[in-house]
Structure formats: structure tokens, C-alpha cells
Design a binder for these strands. Structure first.
Lengths: 195, 195
DNA sequence: GCAAGACTAGACAGGTCTGTCTGCTATCGT
DNA sequence: ACGATAGCAGACAGACCTGTCTAGTCTTGC
């Protein structure tokens, strides 16, 4: 029980605790609704630490969204490793989404939610665009691998399904249901696109 | 030019001016971001008038959303009158949505946006549920009329498309594009559902 | 031992938020 | 003519917001 062991039971840095608290609160209640005071209280951190780490609330919001992007990306890629067949991998995106949406704390897409309460052209739109470009790129790649005749068009369609599933799960409390509906539609579209 | 002519150039009531101002501001910038002061200034109305007409900001938000619901309903039903064939009427929903999304001020679904910045179980969720039940009912009815074998399932699918189109138009600045993508998917689904 | 850096606690400034209240004015039905 | 109703203008209270600043504490490398 050496007190300075670097790999065991180290308290996370103030920055990491802030990000964890911001992630929970911002996602659950909205980036504008939740004030700085609640974030630092949950993180157990002084206000000065927040401003020395991030500089402003906007930057904290940005970091929160970037963290969401990275974690969604990691979860999606890990989830798709289960599948070998390119067709299954494409539909697997909606399986993973269904798992995520079945989570009790699920409240829709963090980027859609944040941008609903943020001005156009601000930092939120910036990171949202990057996230959405990644989603579309992933679909494009999977559509190509699955043998779609026009992978770009199919990717556009799949993005619509992805968004619709996420909104449906948030607004209608149906858990994974909307994502599975989207999965079925995707299967129909894929069949039609590879004839 | 009688000064009291009831049908010519009457200044709208304070209540109506408030609703019009709230509609513009809340939709463009979010219900939480926009404060009471900005609404009454735009409406040219005293603060006391707002509180005597609506009682609270929450009630004003509710009235704003109810107005959106009613106008969307009227616009949709009027737009669908162009079509005779039941199949065209169903797809016409997405044509009307494309027209709406092509509007320069379009910023997605007012209910999705408002609920992103509102607590669960509040008045916003209440009116959102009513609106969404109407959308789903409309699709159900149109799916039945179009001869779908399982209109309830088709309606679920069309709701996903409707949500996805609206989010895509807001997040990706594509104007009516996402709605037309959704229309094409709907045509494919309808063909498969009426075999 | 000790200096440097990271962190905490909390006061403070300046602004904005919702909601209440007091006066004053104009219009309308009777 | 006159009372009722509707509306306007703005001060005010109390809470909450972001962001800054001071002062003290703890940890770590050397």
C-alpha cells in the first residue's frame, strides 16, 4: 500500500473530473441549463481550476462534445468488430445504436441537443459538423464495402435513418425500438441498392 | 375610413402580438435562451400584459408550441389536398416537409428543439407527445388508405424518416434535400409494404 | 528542505433571468 | 358621462449566471 503508487487508486486530475461531471450534467439537462457552479460542485473542483483548464464555459462544452464524439467512435468500431459480413457490419451500426438507446440515461444525440440551444456558427456547430461528417463517412465506407451501387446516395439515406432513430428514442421513450425500426429499413434499402 | 371598423387595419391584441414574437424568437434561438424581456420588446407589449395573459413563461412556451402544432397541421392538410392518389398523398407529406425545410428560417422541429432544453416530464413534453401522436396518426391513416398490409408498422417507419429528414435539414444546412431523400425511402418502403 | 505547480475555498463584480407591483392612459359598452 | 377593461412604462426584488481575484494548502521533484 505505497501511497504514491502511480497506477493504483489515483484520484483523477481536476480536468478529468470536470470533464466527467460536465459529460453527465450537460448531457442529462442541456449545456445551457446547467451552470458552472453545478459542474464544479459535482466534480469537487474549485472554480479557478475550471477556468485555468478550459478558459471558458464554451471551451468546456466543446471538450464535452469532443469526448462524446471520441467515445461514440470507439464504441461503434468495437461493436462492429463482431461482424464479418459487410452487410452485417452496415446493419450493425443500428444494432449498436439500439444498445446505446436502450441505456436508461439515453437522451438522444448530444450534438443535436447541444445545437438546439446554441447559436448558429458557434463552437457547437463546429464540433457537430465534424461528428456528422464522421458518421456519414462511416456509412459511406460500409455502403461501399457492402457492394452498394451508389454508396454516396445510400449513405445519405442511412444518415436520415440514424438521425430518425436517435430522435425517436429520445422523444418517444421507446428505448431501442426506433433503432430496430431503422435497422429494418436499412436492410430493405441495402437489398434494393445491391440488386 | 371609419376608425372603429372591426375588420380593417386593427392592431392585433397584446396576446396575439406576444404569441407572434414568441414564435419567431423561441423558434430561432431556443426557448431557454430567449428571455421574457426580448419577447415583450419585440411584441411592443408591457411585461404586465404578458403575465396577465399567460401567467408564466412556461405557459407562453406551451402556447407557442401549440400554435406551431396547429399551423403545421393546417399546412400539412392543405398541402395534401393537391393529391388524389392515396400513394401520392402519403409521399406528399415529405413534399410538404421539403417545402417547409427549404424556408430560409428553417431550424428543425420546434418540439425536438424545445424538448432538448427542457426537463423531462414538464409541459414541453406534454405538448410534444400530443404533436407526435398526431404525426403518427396521420401516417397511420395514410398508410392504411394507401393499402399497406401493416399500416402500424409502416407508420413507425415513416415517423423515423420524418424525424430524420427534419434533423438532417437543421444540422446539415441542406435545405429540402434530406426531406427528398426521406421521400425516396418512403416510396421504396411503400412499394415493399403493398406487394 | 524547499521551491514550483496544481489545487481548493470563497468573495466579488457585473450582468441577466423571471416575476411582481405601482401608476398612468386609452378605449368601449352602456 | 362614466365605470370597466385592457394595455403601457418602468422600477424593483431575489435568484442565478459567467468570469476574476485573493489567499491558503497539498503534492512532487530535486
Amino acid at each position: 500500500m505505497s501511497a504514491t503508487s502511480p497506477s493504483v487508486a489515483r484520484k483523477p486530475s481536476a480536468r478529468d473530473r470536470l470533464l466527467a461531471a460536465a459529460d453527465e450534467l450537460f448531457y442529462a439537462e442541456g449545456v445551457h441549463t446547467v451552470g458552472i457552479d453545478r459542474v464544479i460542485e459535482k466534480a469537487g473542483v474549485a472554480k479557478a481550476s475550471l477556468y485555468s483548464s478550459f478558459g471558458s464555459k464554451d471551451e468546456l462544452v466543446k471538450a464535452y462534445l469532443q469526448g462524446r464524439h471520441e467515445r461514440r467512435r470507439a464504441r461503434m468500431l468495437a461493436g462492429l468488430e463482431r461482424y464479418d459480413d459487410p452487410r452485417d457490419r452496415l446493419l450493425g451500426v443500428f444494432e449498436v445504436l439500439a444498445e446505446v438507446a436502450g441505456n436508461p440515461g439515453f437522451r438522444g444525440c448530444a450534438f443535436v441537443n447541444a445545437s438546439a440551444e446554441s447559436p448558429r456558427g458557434g463552437p457547437v456547430e463546429e464540433v457537430s459538423d465534424i461528428y456528422r461528417a464522421w458518421v456519414r463517412g462511416l456509412f459511406h465506407e460500409l455502403a461501399r464495402d457492402a457492394g452498394a451501387k451508389d454508396p454516396a446516395t445510400l449513405a445519405d439515406q442511412l444518415v436520415v435513418l440514424y438521425d430518425g432513430a436517435s430522435i425517436g428514442a429520445r422523444m418517444d421513450e421507446g428505448g431501442p425500438k426506433a433503432a430496430l425500426v431503422a435497422r429494418d429499413i436499412a436492410a430493405t434499402l441495402l437489398a434494393a441498392a445491391t440488386l
